[in-house]
């Protein structure tokens, strides 16, 4: 019996290590490549570790284009999207979770349908509309279409529904208006869900490549992802070490944010019953 357990424990551990490696290997490869010389990146068989870490690769990457502008654009777009989304999602989710009103189910179904439509279907009309409004030279085409987040509304609604009705009624008896109930009661009680939604939003907009590629036509409004992709071709050869250095720069903020949010996120999934 004991032996049997040991075997399973070993299998379990081995599987975990394999999965871990599968996830972490590309990541380590990226970091390693970002520190190699051009010759090293093209050697066969490939070298795992750089002989001498080439820290200057980062400087090269960041000086080969207007990276300060790219970074600024990425930050402005991502942060505005998150803030606007929270402002839209919280009241929407509160209404869907705690109010009875005419057409509620139809409206919620619309939200879920919106959740399932990929951006690749809507980008042309949206681009034309933005161009029509003369906004292509601004960051707005990267922000306005994402003011609402159907997945976020769905997740927050699930979370709000679990908050007992009596707490809201107690607040009404305490003479709190609906606005206060939302911000002083619902929001503090839903921090894990809010952190999760905000993080998902952050990752998907910070990493977004397709949408800004379509919606921008000048470096003034391009985000980091596009800037880094433009590192790819210089003088006819792929500068993999420089590209990877750019990618490391792109990924670091996500790691930092994730470290801050991970605990809250796990809690959100446990609570909302998705996990």
């Amino acid at each position: 019996m004991k032996k049997h357990n040991n075997i399973w424990l070993t299998v379990d551990t081995v599987l975990k290590v394999v999965i871990l490696l599968a996830f972490i290997f590309p990541f380590l490869w990226m970091i390693s490549t970002s520190l190699q010389t051009l010759e090293e990146t093209m050697k066969f068989p490939p070298t795992i570790l750089p002989e001498v870490p080439q820290w200057l690769n980062f400087v090269d990457a960041m000086t080969s284009g207007p990276f300060a502008t790219y970074a600024r654009n990425s930050l402005i777009v991502t942060i505005s999207v998150i803030i606007i989304q929270l402002l839209v999602m919280i009241p929407a989710a509160y209404a869907f979770a705690k109010y009875e009103f005419f057409g509620k189910n139809v409206l919620f179904a619309l939200v879920l349908i919106a959740f399932m439509i990929p951006g690749q279907l809507t980008f042309i009309p949206i681009y034309l509309m933005m161009a029509d409004w003369g906004l292509i030279k601004t960051l707005l085409p990267q922000i306005l279409p994402f003011m609402s987040n159907a997945f976020g509304i769905f997740l927050l609604r699930q979370y709000f529904m679990q908050i007992p009705e009596e707490i809201i009624e107690a607040a009404r008896l305490d003479n709190a208006n609906e606005f206060k109930i939302m911000w002083k009661i619902m929001v503090p009680m839903s921090k894990p869900a809010l952190a999760t939604v905000a993080l998902f939003s952050f990752v998907s907009h910070w990493n977004d490549y397709f949408w800004p590629l379509v919606m921008t036509d000048s470096n003034e409004v391009r985000p980091l992802t596009l800037g880094i992709s433009m590192l790819r071709e210089t003088e006819g050869i792929s500068n993999w070490h420089i590209i990877m250095a750019g990618n490391v720069v792109l990924v670091v903020p996500i790691l930092i944010v994730y470290l801050f949010c991970s605990k809250q996120i796990v809690r959100a999934f446990v609570y909302s019953g998705i996990k």
Binding site: P164, I167, E169, L173, A176
Partner: peptide, 15 residues
């Protein structure tokens, strides 16, 4: 909130 009424709920409903 304007009725001059306070209520203690069955499950307390504390914030």
């Amino acid at each position: 909130g304007k009725r001059g009424v306070a209520m203690v709920f069955q499950n307390y409903a504390i914030y």
